[in-house]
Design a protein around this nucleic acid. Structure first.
Lengths: 306, 306
DNA sequence: CTGAAAGCGCTTACAG
DNA sequence: CTGAAAGCGCTTACAG
């Protein structure tokens, strides 16, 4: 083809705004350059930061994100997983609400997938040391001299929440401290943190410290404590979990347990892209990411973040 | 086919985990049940809440979300738009960084699209009354008796930021108040709100009130003010814009301008789904969503939210 | 009512 | 080096 013809073709294609159809391209290359992300929810800073990390990691590998949030029931989860088939090269699935069998039944076989906080034979797994983080936090509170340390959980059916509770329990037991009336169930929302504090106040439960199973609940608790005229950390020490970005902007800045979302995102995407290119599945032994205690002013330790 | 054969086929299909390939299905039905979302960024509460709203709206119509965040330059925007082609039924594009020509050149013709805060002939548009919101806020601050009212902008190239600045200017001028040295450029990040306050303090600029062009900057400003020993609202009134969810958990709760993201999300998705089904494009006259002043304690008006 | 064919829009490997 | 054909995995309309 001559130069001038080529130029004319390119011009016309631009005029008509021709853009290749990616679905068609995917169909015969069997590459989509897309990573599917299945999350239990999209609401809140934690998932937002995770999604943001995954987006950055994906873009650095020239991939896009197909997102499915909020799977209430297992049918939702199943539908979300099935809707990904043929449209993604790989999958990141977070599903802390015990559903290994649903995952097992609906994960397209041979599709590289990384499960975060869940395990299904034949699929990759990444785990966060929730328990270790909760132990470190509880130990920190004990070391500060607190005795009546309450815990607001993230719900009975949530695996991550159960691990955090277990960490708290272990250390409280070790320290010989009572947990009677000090453990109350929440659901990871601000509202439930607020409700937990009101519950303690109504019951007349005296507290030295409150360890919420995530920062969102700590935020809700902070509002309720303040409303009740209690000062943090002078009257009650307050701690969260996740180390969401806004924690440092609170007054007082929130002591928390850092969950390495950037690292998790990078690792997940790197492994998935590698598996896609090699055409292999990932090892199902989970890589466990460790958490870090981040001491800020809300527990009275005065320190600023490491 | 007999009953027993059918049962056996279904069983085998379950065993093999057969799931239809959606890319192939899309190709001949030309329906993807997916809405593409192109945002300038994924970072921060504002985009998180928008994405969450879009996800909910999309799911209520049985659609998924294909997300492209962070388009730094116009090549990124172009690439993101092109990558959507054939993989989505419709598009929501937010691009406040003046780029109507890039949009025009890269929006697949005939693909239903809603632009938020931008206009391109032949495509749908949704706008938010940033200017009116900023006017209402500035008027509120003036009415509270503040005279030296500073404004931290969201950047010179951002259209939404320019509208908010214009609203502030209009009211300040109307009220006969000086703006000398009171307008400083930010970029919608916490960090830039913090920097703005330090700048005012270093310059010895006295302030009655600080109106940040978004809540993230107000958050950063709050930290810097507190660090400088200034109390909000006693020493300096503080106001933001966007009304992100955590504003009410700050101390003091943040006065802000509510941007109706839920309504925006619902409207966008409804219109797009309707256009997809009808096979038509949307009207390019933008529907303008109005904002609401939300008075909380950070400006000293004492009120709680309406 | 069942089964084979055509076609969605691409890309890749092959024949001319 | 160019151009026509085959095929990715579906669904839909048609022939048997």
């Amino acid at each position: 083809v001559g130069e001038s013809t080529r130029a004319r073709i390119e011009q016309v294609s631009r005029e008509l705004r021709y853009v290749p159809n990616r679905a068609a391209r995917s169909l015969n290359t069997s590459r989509t350059h897309t990573i599917g992300v299945v999350l239990p929810d999209l609401y809140g800073a934690f998932f937002s930061e995770l999604l943001c990390g995954l987006d950055q990691a994906a873009r650095s590998h020239h991939h896009q994100l197909l997102v499915a949030g909020s799977h209430g029931g297992s049918e939702d989860l199943a539908a979300a997983l099935q809707a990904m088939n043929g449209r993604v090269d790989a999958l990141v699935v977070m599903s802390p609400v015990a559903a290994a069998d649903v995952l097992e039944a609906n994960l397209p076989a041979h599709l590289p997938a990384i499960l975060v906080g869940a395990e299904v034979p034949g699929f990759g797994a990444l785990a966060v040391d929730h328990r270790g983080g909760a132990e470190a936090m509880t130990r920190h509170l004990v070391a500060l001299g607190h005795r009546r340390i309450a815990h607001v959980t993230g719900g009975a059916t949530n695996r991550d929440a159960a691990d955090r509770l277990a960490g708290y329990r272990t250390v409280m037991r070790e320290a010989g401290l009572s947990m009677d009336g000090l453990v109350v169930e929440g659901d990871f929302t601000e509202r439930s943190g607020d409700a937990a504090v009101r519950g303690f106040l109504d019951a007349g439960t005296g507290l030295d410290a409150l360890f919420a199973a995530n920062d969102a609940m700590a935020l809700g608790a902070l509002g309720a404590l303040r409303e009740a005229g209690l000062r943090v950390p002078d009257d009650v020490a307050l701690a969260g979990f996740d180390d969401i970005l806004l924690g440092r902007y609170l007054a007082p800045p929130l002591t928390s347990v850092h969950v390495p979302l950037d690292q998790l995102s990078r690792l997940a995407v790197e492994r998935l892209v590698a598996a896609t290119e090699a055409g292999t599945q990932l090892e199902s032994t989970p890589a466990v990411l460790s958490t870090t205690l981040v001491v800020r002013a809300s527990c009275g330790a005065g320190g600023s973040a490491p």
